[in-house]
Design a binder for these strands. Structure first.
Lengths: 262, 262
DNA sequence: CCTCGTCCTCCCACTGAGCGGAAGGACATC
DNA sequence: GATGTCCTTCCGCTCAGTGGGAGGACGAGG
């Protein structure tokens, strides 16, 4: 190869894929040179690769000459079995909760050190949208995250406790305090947050437990609801039973499905 | 290149992408050799490409050694602006309709000669699931499809009329009859189907109209609802006004958004 | 009008990354 | 143990990919 200077990616394929990596939630639209920069690819090479990706439909070019993810990737992405069964089983229950409360309902699983939102039903006149399907948020700052963290292996908990990032002035960043909260979550099965991720929003969340053959139960997901803080005092306590009913429904349904693997 | 025999794809990138094309709704899980076959790629080459795709996260390997679309593609796909604005605007309205009726509600746009389902809220005890988000169904056999077809350019209508495929014994496959139905749709603004796509399911759908600056209105999408046939006679007529209210709300909201482009 | 800056597109000679047949392993079936 | 299916590793040939450079398109500032 001509350049050979810095760590030239390696294979063509990996380079093409790295170009795609330039996109993320904060950068859903990029110019050619932005993509080249962000993926550390020589401009000319990026140009060629992007041309091929566009021809296939992985990217598409907007009238303003910037690129965005194309429909083909959308199609393909929908085939990904990311908790497909969980989402399918849980969806009606989320709708039930939404119908009963008209608030924003979330379903999340733990993905490494983050809470991955796999489904969402958004309330009409609800709080500022922080999370969307596909979002990952820090475990310690959101309701569903605390629930998932409380059920996580010790090493995960330790790692999270060591790196508590502040999101708002209400975020719990003292390890000891969070550890105490987690103990409460394990005892009660539910977690609360109050403006710890974004101001004006409070939440409750509960575990979705699945009984596995052998008598053990595992926490497969977390089900949460977000309300404007001014309604939190009045509503959150009342919402826990609603969530619990739905969570148990989901858990029972999941246990029934033989294919389910954690 | 060694072989050089048949039309060797071309570029590495296009080959890698073609391998991904092996996946579709009917084939969400494939073995290595299936992917090689389906993409007309020599086994060894497919093996290498798939290895790279897997390393990046485009694919993932299941315990049973088959491959499926990986989480990374799911993430990326969610960034695709496939009717992003439409979906965001419409979502609360779909939920409203669902809350009021508890049936399966669909939002679709026309994509070439098919109806592309961009959002869905599924009813609890509803009909057999035919369509999912991302599905494409023939325009002439579904409610939202007829609405979209009625608003489509003449050449599209002609093409569809020339190739009416039978889905069930109730599918309308006579061009003249469908043309008549389309005229009705244009007049009334709503379309019905009765077991034309799958037995046991009937539907109504209405246009989502947007007033563009300049006084013209365009049909941006179709909003539909599916009910079990045994309830169709009783429910469908009553559902039209519900859908119309929601569709008008969506249309008004879309018109307000300046960015909206058809 | 010209200059400068940004961003994109085209060109082309060099070379190492990709290619894929062949061989061998893992596992199941008869 | 013979036969089949599916996956993985190996390796020498060569053509596809590479990326600097040149130049075009467009806009802002002088």
């Amino acid at each position: 190869m001509a350049g050979g200077s810095s760590g030239t990616g390696r294979s063509v394929t990996s380079r093409a894929l790295r170009v795609l990596d330039a996109f993320d939630v904060d950068h859903p639209r990029l110019t050619l040179s932005e993509m080249a920069d962000r993926s550390a690819t020589p401009l000319t090479t990026a140009h060629r690769l992007i041309g091929e990706l566009t021809a296939w439909g992985a990217l598409s070019r907007r009238p303003d000459s910037r690129y965005e993810i194309g429909r083909k990737l959308w199609d393909l992405g929908l085939l990904a079995p990311v908790q497909a069964e969980l989402r399918q089983v849980a969806s009606p229950f989320l709708l039930d909760v939404h119908t009963a409360t008209r608030d924003t309902v979330h379903l999340a699983v733990r993905d490494g050190l983050t809470a991955l939102y796999v489904d969402r039903v958004s309330g009409r006149e609800s709080v500022p949208v922080v999370s969307q399907v596909g979002s990952r948020l820090p475990l310690h700052a959101v309701g569903v995250g605390k629930v998932l963290l409380a059920a996580a292996p010790d090493d995960v908990v330790e790692q999270v406790l060591r790196s508590l990032t502040r999101q708002t002035r209400h975020t719990v960043v003292e390890p000891a305090r969070l550890a105490r909260e987690l103990a409460d979550v394990r005892r009660t099965g539910s977690a609360r947050t109050s403006e710890e991720m974004s101001l004006g929003a409070s939440s409750v969340a509960v575990q979705v437990q699945v009984s596995r053959p052998g008598g053990r139960t595992v926490v497969a997901a977390a089900l949460g609801i977000v309300v404007p803080t001014h309604r939190a005092e009045r509503d959150l306590a009342r919402l826990v039973p609603v969530l619990e009913v739905a969570a148990r429904g989901i858990g029972r349904e999941l246990a029934r499905t033989q294919e389910f693997r954690c």
